[in-house]
């Protein structure tokens, strides 16, 4: 796609990038948690589109299934479960000094990350691009090219992740369980 329609590719890349950025700004300024969660779904779906354009189709599918699907449903479920009350007491934003401090931290961070991005961009010139459709086809297709390093080089990390998920399951059940009176001690 990149080679055949460079203009279309660039247009859609910027389109989805701007949609993600705009939706993120709208997300962070919403008072209602439900509206914020739905805008975050827009951000995540746009990012999935960007993943497809960056030759990471499997990550894009997982992004839609796990992030935009499962995790955001859990968030909305919690909002529904807690019955948080009226909007006026919900949409609280920190006072003046908190906002100024956050703006300063944000400006410093964006300057720092922009400098890092420039450094990475100049780095790219020296490293040959190994990805793209041909390289992926050589290494065993879209999923095979991820599965091979995951189950060879990073097998220990993969197994540790399964332990982490088990701990998270048990931990969330223990934390969210309703304690009865004689059980509390």
């Amino acid at each position: 796609m990149n080679e055949f329609y460079p203009l279309v590719y660039t247009f859609h890349f910027y389109l989805f990038g701007l949609v993600a950025l705009a939706a993120a700004i709208v997300f962070v300024t919403r008072k209602s948690p439900v509206a914020a969660a739905l805008w975050l779904v827009v951000v995540m779906t746009s990012l999935a589109a960007l993943y497809v354009m960056l030759d990471a189709e499997f990550v894009a599918v997982i992004q839609v299934l796990v992030y935009a699907g499962a995790i955001m449903v859990v968030f909305l479920f919690i909002v529904m479960l807690l019955n948080l009350g009226t909007l006026s007491e919900l949409g609280e934003i920190r006072g003046k000094w908190g906002r100024i401090a956050a703006a300063l931290v944000g400006l410093a961070l964006v300057a720092e990350l922009a400098a890092l991005s420039r450094a990475a961009y100049s780095l790219r010139v020296t490293v040959p691009a190994r990805s793209g459709p041909e390289a992926i086809a050589e290494t065993g297709g879209v999923i095979g090219s991820i599965a091979a390093p995951m189950f060879r080089d990073y097998l220990l990390a993969f197994e540790l992740t399964s332990v982490l998920l088990l701990v998270a399951i048990i931990g969330s059940v223990v934390l969210a369980r309703k304690r009865s009176e004689h059980d509390a001690g």
Partner: peptide
Amino acid sequence: MLAESLALSAALFTIGVVGVLVRRNAII
């Protein structure tokens, strides 16, 4: 598209950090 992606990533990360610092709703 590497530079654009990294710039967008930086912007989204900063929006997240500012949100953590500014918002008071634990879920948000």
